[in-house]
Simulated assay, not measured.
Amino acid sequence: MSPVVVLVGPPGAGKTTVGRVLAERLGVGLHDTDTAIEEAAGRSVSDIFVGEGEARFRELERVEVVRALAEEHGVVALGGGAVMQEAIATALREGDHRVVFLDVTIADAAGRVGFDASRPLLVVNPRAAWTRLMNARRPVYEALATVRVQTGDRTPEQIADEVLQALGQAR
Rank of each mutant, 00 (worst) to 15 (best):
T35H: 15
A13Q: 03
V83S: 05
W130Y: 12
D161G: 10
Q150S: 11
E64P: 04
T17L: 11
V140W: 10
Q150V: 13
V75L: 03
L167F: 11
A128I: 12
A109S: 15
N135L: 13
E52M: 00
V163G: 03
E157W: 04
D96K: 11
I48P: 07
A166L: 14
T146H: 12
T33N: 07
E54L: 02
R119L: 09
T155N: 04
T155A: 08
V140G: 06
R67H: 14
G81H: 09
E64L: 08
M134H: 15
A107V: 15
S46G: 07
M84F: 10
E52A: 00
G19A: 05
Q150L: 12
V75P: 01
D96R: 14
A128L: 14
V66Q: 08
G95T: 08
D32K: 06
R62H: 11
D153F: 11
A91D: 07
V99L: 02
P126Q: 11
G80P: 05
R58L: 07
A13F: 02
T16D: 03
T90Q: 13
E94T: 13
G51V: 00
L7A: 07
A23V: 01
T151S: 13
R67Y: 12
S2D: 12
I48S: 03
L78N: 02
G14T: 05
R25G: 04
L78K: 02
F57L: 01
R148T: 14
V18N: 03
G53D: 02
I37Q: 02
A77Y: 04
D108M: 15
G53N: 00
V100R: 03
F57R: 04
H97G: 05
S118K: 13
A129D: 12
T131H: 13
A36K: 05
A82N: 02
I159L: 04
I159M: 04
E61H: 07
F101T: 01
V18G: 03
G29I: 01
A13K: 04
R20K: 09
R93D: 11
G80Y: 05
V63A: 14
Y141K: 01
E157P: 05
H31K: 12
M84D: 04
P11M: 13
R56C: 05
L102E: 07
A82D: 03
E157S: 13
E86R: 14
T17H: 08
G152Y: 12
F115Q: 07
V8S: 09
P126V: 10
G168I: 10
S118V: 12
F57N: 02
A91F: 10
T33C: 08
V123D: 04
V140D: 02
V76Y: 07
